[in-house]
């Protein structure tokens, strides 16, 4: 068994940061997220490896908030398109949790399967190594296990680290992981250490059978009640590690410009607003319903798993106190037999 002593953590991060852009969970001012280790300011930044989830997920490492797709010139009737995308430097996401690793597996399903491969995503994903941090003590809003995620055995990880007190157990899971093991060299030691047992979850989501049950609940009055307080602000989609919907837009000046894509949100009416006026999801309840059906039913029908990995960030972020665990349980418990 290989272990990394916590006293050698910074040295290890410095070492890994030599050959790749290394993203680690940091608290920075009032924010927290995955930031480059090279930007770490001792004193003001705080390394959040042993905290649970930081505020923002690491999705921007593989799927940036904005991304230039190509540039163009438009001179009178003539148009020229220049592909400007360059494959990114090798990257490492260090210390993400099982929920975030599982969310990247959802991205892989979306961007790399079902007919077309998204070249922009693929380039970033291929160059990204994932060091996942196993969890043994679920937080106040954690419910990953209910969504089919084993917090102690993160999927999609190239390396799994496990907190065993004074040391992290280091377990390489892929050839990408072996490279990191090699890069760390003697910083890793051969020693025995034991990971703790998994403590009970505080949040109890009962997702079993919900995807199937939702098939008959599209027109159920429950949506009116569940969506009543939603302001469609979109913060849930922004902090969600598995929300991937994007927009494509143009920025231009004079004859030049570029086309880029950026995060979008299904909570906004423009998302589905068609030229000519028709909007299939024109009101808040319809958008709210689509978001939760996408997460809990549609994605599962298409890719065989829900598009929620139980990280609990939306529960924390929602200004209206909407709680996806309560939504799942409300759906699970709804008596649809008495309804027309």
């Amino acid at each position: 068994m290989q272990i990394l002593s916590k006293s050698k953590l910074e040295e290890a991060l410095n070492q890994l940061g030599k050959n790749a852009e290394l993203f680690v969970p940091l608290a920075r001012g009032e924010e927290s997220g995955f930031y480059p280790w090279s930007s770490y300011q001792a004193g003001s930044d705080r390394l959040m490896l042993d905290a649970l989830n930081v505020l923002l997920p690491p999705k921007s490492v593989v799927f940036p908030q904005t991304e230039r797709m190509y540039s163009f010139t438009s001179t009178g009737p003539a148009v020229e398109i220049k592909e400007t995308f360059e494959s990114p430097q090798p990257r490492i996401i260090f210390g993400l949790r099982a929920c975030d690793a599982a969310a990247i597996a959802c991205f892989d399903d979306v961007f790399l399967t079902m007919g077309f491969i998204d070249s922009f995503y693929q380039a970033r994903r291929d160059n990204t190594t994932i060091v996942a941090h196993a969890c043994y003590e679920p937080g106040a809003n954690c419910f990953c296990e209910a969504m089919g995620v084993d917090p102690t055995e993160p999927v999609n990880a190239d390396v799994i680290i496990r907190d065993a007190g004074e040391v992290y157990i280091w377990e390489s899971k892929s050839s990408k992981g072996e490279k990191l093991t090699a890069a760390l060299g003697s910083l890793l030691e051969n020693k025995e250490a034991a990971a703790p047992g998994l403590k009970p979850f505080q949040q109890q989501a009962n997702y079993e059978g919900v995807a199937e049950k939702l098939k008959g609940m599209f027109e159920d009055p429950i949506w009116e009640q569940l969506a009543a307080t939603c302001q469609t602000c979109g913060i849930c989609t922004y902090v969600c590690p598995s929300c991937y919907c994007f927009d494509i837009q143009v920025k231009s000046w004079g004859e030049e410009g570029y086309r880029f894509r950026c995060y979008d949100s299904c909570m906004y009416s423009e998302y589905t607003q068609m030229a000519g006026g028709h909007n299939p999801r024109g009101n808040e309840r319809e958008r709210f319903r689509n978001r939760f059906l996408h997460k809990l039913q549609f994605f599962s029908e298409r890719y065989g798993k829900p598009l929620c990995t139980g990280c609990g960030r939306c529960i924390v972020a929602c200004p209206a106190g909407i709680n996806i665990v309560e939504i799942i349980n409300n759906i699970k418990e709804a008596d649809t037999s008495v309804r027309a």
Binding site: V110, F111, M114, G115, F116, D118, Y244, C245, F246, D247, I248, R261, D264, C266, Y271, T272, Q273, M274, P280, N290, L293, H294, Q297, F298, F299, E301, R302
Partner: peptide, 24 residues
């Protein structure tokens, strides 16, 4: 059918009806 579309390849999300993407 017709829906608003951006990517055309079943990724960007908006043209779904249920679990089907109209563009794909």
């Amino acid at each position: 059918l017709e829906m608003r579309m951006k990517c055309g390849i079943g990724k960007c999300g908006r043209c779904n009806v249920g679990s089907e993407y109209i563009c794909l």
